[in-house]
Design a protein around this nucleic acid. Structure first.
Lengths: 197, 197
DNA sequence: GTCTATATTACGATAGAC
DNA sequence: GTCTATCGTAATATAGAC
């Protein structure tokens, strides 16, 4: 290892700083001045690395979307009983959310004011749609309770998962909390809070 | 009824327009110019009714918070088994969210850049804390499954409820959808998705 | 209560030196 | 790759007429 001291920025390292600030202040609430202060370089230096604020947003949400869509193509998500596929996708979505927390957080807060934001919203809808299809299949195979509307249940399930970005923070050096949270999500979603089943 | 034609604004009627735009574009993404266009009056006319943008935010989140806190003081939320109190608070929180949808939506998206936003976040934390206490009591009475962390489960439960602001839209003249969604939330949360209990 | 006009500041982005 | 200086625009808010 060449002990590369990083006193200088690349688009990649700048991105992690930018995403952190975007999540703290909101994308619209973050000025290039804010980014410049947080990165420790001048505003104009940022423009050396990226074309502008929106490129940073695009890179960030792309990373989140790539992680989420990859789950749908993993082998256990494509074979077997649909209810098992849904459970697998749920579990893996939680894991991606933890692994790419700042990027997924930013993705889930996008509103739609710019072209990039509208593109992100559209891809998110596409992901949701594919999950909803899985849920419909599981219901069709009789593995989901029949007294709830499946579309509503899908939204609530992934709303629950997505809400994690509001409170989950990784404990350094603790792989156990990841497993614990993932298990809790799956248990709650599929078997409920109450005792006595 | 005096057929009060409303060609003019009061702080109250202006608020509903502002909250709608805040939710569409985000608070920071909304300029006074945007509000002026949406309300059909000039920017300076808005300042006749409110001291500025932040007052509109404060009025809106106050309304949401008042609705949520009121639930905690309703009689069924204060007596009986804790698990029943939690179920009641869950159900009523869903209802308040539906009744005050734009206001609760705005509350849940607040970041913390201004004094008003930080105040709103603090009051939200207070509400969450009181709900968490209820959940702890229910667990202590043995009515919640013991293989999940209660703090995590509380966050997931109310994360699920709060996620409704991202997709729930009232069907005009349909009281049935309210009941249906509320039931789905409670069933999912307490008894889970899966068949065969 | 509403308007036009404007003060003042902050923003995103660029120019050009080092 | 970084900087200082600056451009043009858009933001919040105010002044003062009607």
């Amino acid at each position: 290892m060449t002990t590369a001291r990083r006193d200088t920025y690349t688009p990649e390292t700048l991105l992690s700083v930018a995403v952190r600030v975007f999540n703290e202040r909101g994308y619209d609430g973050t000025s290039m001045e804010h980014l410049s202060k947080a990165a420790g370089i001048s505003k104009s230096s940022i423009y050396h690395h990226v074309t502008g604020k929106e490129e940073l947003l695009r890179r960030a949400v792309s990373r989140a979307l790539d992680g989420l869509f990859a789950v749908l193509d993993e082998e256990p998500a494509t074979r077997g009983r649909a209810v098992e596929r849904v459970e697998y996708v749920t579990r893996r979505t939680v894991e991606v959310l933890m692994d790419e927390l700042p990027y997924v957080t930013l993705l889930l807060r996008v509103r739609g004011n710019t072209r990039t934001e509208r593109w992100a919203l559209e891809r998110r809808r596409e992901f949701d749609h594919r999950v909803a299809d899985l849920m419909k299949a599981a219901a069709g195979e009789g593995d989901l309770r029949s007294d709830v509307d499946i579309k509503t249940a899908t939204r609530l399930l992934f709303g629950m998962v997505n809400s994690m970005v509001e409170w989950y923070r990784p404990l350094p050096g603790d792989g156990a909390d990841r497993q614990q949270v993932t298990d809790t999500v799956v248990r709650l979603a599929f078997d409920g809070l109450r005792t006595g089943h």
